[in-house]
Design a protein around this nucleic acid. Structure first.
Length: 561
DNA sequence: CTTGGCCCGGTTC
DNA sequence: TGAACCGGG
């Protein structure tokens, strides 16, 4: 549900940048001979030429649409160049596009608060930059790219369009807000030039006082153009706009507005009072609707340039549905391999750790009765390492399958069955938390409830491999501490766990280098008796002391603390 | 069998 | 907290 947010009192300058047919551009950069040719990117070539997921503007002129299959595109545009999405592990691999998007973001993020809205879209809050420019260096000589801006509501009286824009951008009698937008447009023009220079990608942009208007504007003039939305032109611009094309109104809420109230355009919505809308759609949604009809939106640009989750999925439509545990396991393995690769790259590049693994399954049941029953999603703590992830994902699948099929387990698990068919699988990693950088105190890794009786940092400092290290003694239930310690120490390159008590029957108190150079997950690899301890957990509620020593390399590459 | 496949974010309970 | 659902590209 949309939430009504008050527009901030001070005018903001918000830009929305949208890469032009992004996947095509990525492929054209890779194969420059494709530039200027009608081109489309397809995935899965085997069925009717694959599905189009991006279409170049040259190809659009021939009527090629994103909804088409490759064969269909060939028939309306025989010379079209079809490029396949890379395939890895038997599934489409979008990583080259994700990485290309990151290139763009890293350029844009220098200028102001930056929100990565999708693989090819970014919002920027340029308020500060625009205010600064207005105060210190008001627009004088104008970049050619800025002169090519479109200004909504600016009447082109037949004279040179660039001259009109130039006059508009430099008007001294403009109000403060319009001047801010002018500065924003100059900044965006420069940013787009930088992006083009550094990545060879073109993009289009909208510049307005809020996200909603900026987003609508960025789509008005494509490709490689930018559009400004002055406040004075909002009403005229928004009035005829189809209600279903407003962000958040593309689904059921938009349907309801259309069929229940006969609202087809934003202008139609204007006739309803805030109270009426609130009566029908609730306080928040009603207020939000009333505001957006007037081009008012307070939604802020989130400062986030990294994704909050990673997912890897594949569908198995109709006859290709998976009908045995073995095939499900096979595909889960592939998906988990990709996921593992991506979270390790995130750890390496961004020092972030994912904490939750979730499995989503789409499945059908042939034993009808309630065949619409959905396969339940399941999640669990994420342990690093592809084998662990795959094991956990398979466990989640079994748990979900039991619920899906009812308490009685299907008979044939190994081989083909006729009870169920899996038509979609996806694994995702979420709850991604930044790891602390550089040298830090061990206290940071433990919640305050967990009493730390002593902390010292001398006794492991002689290890030359470690940038930092510390020892702490805890008074907590032993297993709780162990689990906590391992969760917290996940990002450490080295760790050591040694109980104070003598009954810890293990030689493994010494430092252990993690086999995959990343993470230790499992205390049982250190102490073979841990399973016994676990079974005694309930009767063993007494506090235990434990000495935990952890150490790690500082995150900064090359290691300075 | 298809405006899908493969993603991502947010809200609600 | 997890899970269902919604909406977007």
């Amino acid at each position: 549900m949309p939430v009504a947010k008050p527009a901030s009192s001070e005018a903001r300058v918000i830009a929305h940048l949208d890469m032009d047919c992004f996947y095509v551009q990525v492929e054209q950069r890779k194969q420059p001979q494709l530039r200027g040719l009608p081109t489309a990117v397809v995935q899965y070539n085997e069925w009717k030429g694959g599905g189009l997921i991006a279409v170049s503007y040259e190809a659009r002129k021939f009527g090629v649409k994103r909804s088409m299959r490759g064969d269909e595109a060939k028939s309306v545009c025989p010379q079209i160049q079809l490029v396949q999405v890379p395939i890895a592990r038997g599934k489409a691999d979008l990583s080259i596009y994700r990485d290309a998007g990151s290139e763009v973001v890293s350029i844009l993020a220098k200028m102001g608060r930056c929100e990565r809205a999708s693989i090819d879209e970014v919002y920027l809050d340029l308020t500060d930059a625009a205010e600064t420019m207005l105060a210190e260096s008001p627009p004088e000589s104008l970049d050619d790219e800025a002169l090519k801006s479109h200004v909504l509501g600016l009447v082109d009286d037949g004279t040179d369009a660039k001259e009109c824009v130039k006059i508009w951008l430099q008007r001294s009698d403009a109000d403060h807000n319009d001047k801010l937008l002018s500065c924003g447009a100059l900044i965006v023009a420069e940013l787009r030039n930088n992006v083009l220079k550094e990545t060879e990608f073109t993009c289009s942009a909208g510049i307005a006082h809020n996200k909603m208007l900026a987003k609508l504007a960025s789509g008005l003039n494509k490709p490689a153009q930018q559009t400004i939305v002055p406040s004075a032109s909002v009403k005229e611009f928004l009035g005829p706009w189809p209600i279903k094309k407003m962000k958040q109104l593309g689904g059921k809420l938009g349907d309801s507005l259309q069929s229940d109230l006969g609202i087809n355009t934003v202008g139609d919505l204007l006739q309803y009072s805030e109270q009426k809308l609130q009566e029908r759609y609730g306080f928040n949604t009603g207020a939000w609707l009333w505001n957006i009809a007037r081009g008012v939106s307070g939604e802020e640009v989130k400062g986030r340039i990294l994704p909050q989750s990673h997912g890897s999925g594949k569908t198995f439509p109709g006859p290709r549905a998976l009908r045995s545990i073995d095939t499900v396991s096979h595909w889960l393995k592939k998906l988990c391999e990709e996921l593992s690769e991506r979270i390790l790259a995130d750890l390496d590049q961004n020092k972030r750790i994912a904490h939750t693994l979730t499995l989503h399954v789409r499945a059908n049941k042939s034993s009808d009765t309630d065949s619409q029953k959905k396969f339940p999603s399941k999640s669990c703590p994420l342990r690093y390492g592809i084998t662990k992830i795959q094991e956990d994902a398979l466990s989640l699948f079994h748990a979900g399958l039991r619920e899906f099929m009812g308490t009685y387990v299907a008979r044939s698990e190994k081989n083909q069955n006729n009870e169920w068919g899996v038509t979609g699988l996806s694994v995702s990693a979420s709850k991604i938390i930044s790891a602390p950088q550089g040298t830090c105190s061990i206290r940071k890794f433990f919640p305050s409830q967990c009493a730390v009786s002593t902390i010292s940092s001398e006794d492991t400092n002689n290890d030359p491999n470690l940038e930092w290290s510390a020892v702490a003694k805890f008074s907590c239930p032993l297993l709780a501490v162990c689990e906590l310690a391992l969760q917290s120490a996940q990002h450490l390159k080295f760790s050591r766990i040694k109980p104070i008590e003598n009954n810890w029957n293990s030689e493994s108190g010494a430092f252990v280098e993690m086999e995959d150079n990343t993470i230790m997950h499992d205390i049982s690899s250190l102490d073979p008796n841990v399973d016994e301890r676990k079974s005694q957990k309930n009767q063993d509620e007494d506090d235990h002391g434990i000495e935990l020593a952890v150490g790690g390399e500082a995150w900064a590459a090359g290691g300075k603390g």
